[in-house]
Design a protein around this nucleic acid. Sequence first.
RNA 1: GGGCGGGUAGCUCAGUUGGUUAGAGCAGGAGCCUUUUAAGCUUCAGGUCGUGGGUUCGAUUCCCACCCCGCUCACCA
Length: 498
Amino acid sequence: MTDELHFLMAARREKLDAMRARGIEPFAYSFDRTSTAQHAVSLAPEDQSSEASERVSVAGRIVSMRAHGKTAFAHLADATGRVQLYFRRDELGDAYALIDMLDIGDVIGVSGVVFRTRSGEPTIRVAAFEVLAKSLRPLPFAKEETASDGSVVRHMGFSDPEQRFRQRYADLAVNPEVRATFVARAGMTRAIRAFLDARGYLEVETPVLQPQYGGAAARPFVTQHNALDMALYLRIADELYLKRLIIGGMERVYEIGHDFRNEGVDRTHNPEFTMLEFYEAYADYEVMMDVVERLIVAAADAVRAVEPFTDAVPVFTTPFRRIEWLGAINAGLGTDILALDHAGLIKHATRLGVPRAAAMSRPKLMDEIFQLLVESKIVEPTFVVDYPLELSPLAKPKRGDARLTERFELFANGRELANAFSELNDPIDQRERFEAQAALRAAGDLEAAAVDEDYLRAMEYGMPPTGGVGIGIDRLLMYLTGIQHIRDVILFPTLRPE
RNA sequence: GGGCGGGUAGCUCAGUUGGUUAGAGCAGGAGCCUUUUAAGCUUCAGGUCGUGGGUUCGAUUCCCACCCCGCUCACCA
């Protein structure tokens, strides 16, 4: 059936027309609120015989309605919660006829005094009300029952995952607890900004559209600039631009923004996601480990402050455990992985069950083996330190062991939460690393980086020693809240068009 | 991409071993009801049973293909 002709919508259009026939315009310009729903509830007198002295005006959406002839009850929801409304014909006179033209979903403004009903529920006795926006399309509100222990039981409702994400507006309107996730998300990023700002960091914005992408291993989205007649890539990382700023003398910078990776969509991957990167001149990865630890704790405190997540957020003991990449993997493998040639790596990877190992490059094989033997088994937050040089084309070699780099990743619950290094600041070494990547790329590794000549030019001017960190904000929120699917922490996850 | 499960009313779901009018609750219309709260009572309406083919006297049901969704594996260092 077509929406336009649907009987449910037709009925609402008829009510709209009936209101206008009475000279009422049901789409308002503004409404002066004197109270929120939450505040109105708090005004209710203790005993049932009296009522609050103060008259309140509240606005929100009608989420339930029970009409009884000459009286009617409804619940009004705003951002703070819900409050019951009581309409009486004795009180409203001719205006009471408008009750027949209201629907669940309408946005209305009411004023009246707060009292308690026979059953004790705080309720506004409506003295006047107006329709602020007529709802022409029915929202799938669920019936809610307040159990004797005060918990709310929702009956049926709006649960189809596809429709919830396609119509997040309806999801948020109907399932108010969804909002809490995004309140927590905002609290978390606010805490992170406050933490970095307090440390003297400057928040910056670098290009999303880039002529050359880099800073990570991933396949990009490509787009076309018409006037310049050139291809542009959506960034896969912020890294190389933020380090250009370090070279320019902005000694502490961070950016929170979207990166884009042209890869699969699943429980932990959305094509666009939010990345925090921060860089600090004159710091090495030891300093950054300490910063990351405190930043994670600050983020966790912020999420813990949001009601439904208080118990979900892990309580950390610092310092986090540290293990060495090479020691951990060699212990699992029973031999020195760095002593293995390509054929030996393929043999071990295959033995461990890595599919299609024969087609993989050395770095890829090492990472696969690491994931299986070490990463997947980490539960408590753990810094894995000192990654092999060939896995880390932007990191400085480790002092005292040129096979490794000063790099760490933070893992918890088998997932990567942060990736960081003492940034490579030797432009000659960086060129060699880029060229090694380019060779992998030429050999068919679609995720290997290309040589970035402009970045090398910037480095040649002189880049101070720098510590840098990347943290996936969506993943961090998932970890802290215990939410299992990335689409539940993103307001509008990527979907196929309808 | 592989495997498994699913797509039936606006929402949440039953059901059809192939058969005539496809069901429920909520939401909706009409009526009654001046403290209800999953309000209640009476009554009415609401469906191309994901799409397209095939088999059949007859397909929402069986067969084939396709589309979409979920879970999962793979991929995503």
